Amino acid sequence: MASTDEQFAQAANHWDLETLYTDLASVKGKRLTPVEKLHLRGLLCGYSPAEIAERLGKNAKGVETDLCATVYRYVKSLLDKCNEKIENWRKIAEWLEDAGYKSQSNAQVPVNSLLPGNSVVNITNINIEKDQIVFLINLRIPTSKVSDISIKDLNLDDNTTN
Score class of each variant (00 low, 15 high):
1 M>L: 00
1 M>A: 09
2 A>Q: 12
3 S>V: 07
5 D>P: 05
6 E>M: 12
6 E>F: 10
8 F>Y: 12
8 F>T: 04
9 A>L: 10
9 A>K: 14
11 A>S: 07
12 A>L: 14
12 A>D: 11
12 A>Y: 11
13 N>G: 07
14 H>P: 01
20 L>T: 05
22 T>N: 12
23 D>G: 05
24 L>V: 02
24 L>G: 00
26 S>F: 01
26 S>T: 09
27 V>D: 04
28 K>G: 02
29 G>R: 01
32 L>H: 01
35 V>W: 12
35 V>S: 14
36 E>L: 02
37 K>F: 02
40 L>G: 07
40 L>D: 03
41 R>F: 08
41 R>V: 01
41 R>S: 02
42 G>N: 02
42 G>I: 00
46 G>R: 09
46 G>D: 05
46 G>S: 03
47 Y>I: 07
49 P>Y: 09
49 P>K: 08
50 A>W: 08
51 E>A: 13
51 E>M: 11
56 L>Q: 12
56 L>E: 14
58 K>V: 11
58 K>D: 12
59 N>L: 06
60 A>N: 11
60 A>M: 11
62 G>L: 05
62 G>P: 04
64 E>D: 11
64 E>F: 13
64 E>K: 15
64 E>R: 13
65 T>Y: 10
66 D>M: 06
67 L>D: 05
70 T>E: 06
70 T>K: 07
70 T>Q: 07
71 V>Q: 07
75 V>G: 03
75 V>L: 01
75 V>I: 05
75 V>P: 03
76 K>W: 06
77 S>F: 10
77 S>V: 01
77 S>G: 02
78 L>A: 01
80 D>E: 08
81 K>D: 02
81 K>I: 03
83 N>H: 11
84 E>G: 02
87 E>P: 00
87 E>Y: 04
88 N>I: 02
92 I>Y: 13
92 I>S: 13
93 A>L: 10
94 E>S: 08
97 E>K: 10
98 D>G: 06
99 A>Q: 06
99 A>F: 07
100 G>A: 00
101 Y>D: 01
101 Y>R: 01
102 K>D: 00
102 K>I: 00
103 S>F: 04
103 S>C: 00
104 Q>H: 09
104 Q>C: 08
105 S>H: 15
105 S>P: 14
106 N>L: 14
107 A>W: 11
108 Q>I: 15
108 Q>R: 15
110 P>K: 14
112 N>R: 15
112 N>T: 14
114 L>N: 00
115 L>H: 10
117 G>S: 09
117 G>I: 03
117 G>A: 08
118 N>W: 00
119 S>N: 08
120 V>G: 05
120 V>L: 10
120 V>S: 13
120 V>N: 00
122 N>F: 12
122 N>Q: 15
124 T>G: 07
124 T>W: 09
126 I>K: 02
127 N>E: 13
128 I>Q: 06
130 K>E: 10
130 K>A: 09
130 K>F: 03
130 K>C: 06
133 I>E: 08
133 I>Q: 09
135 F>P: 06
135 F>S: 05
136 L>T: 12
136 L>M: 11
138 N>W: 15
138 N>R: 15
143 T>C: 10
146 V>P: 13
147 S>L: 14
149 I>L: 03
149 I>V: 02
150 S>R: 02
152 K>Y: 10
152 K>N: 12
154 L>D: 01
155 N>L: 04
157 D>K: 08
159 N>R: 07
159 N>P: 07
160 T>M: 11
161 T>A: 11
162 N>P: 08
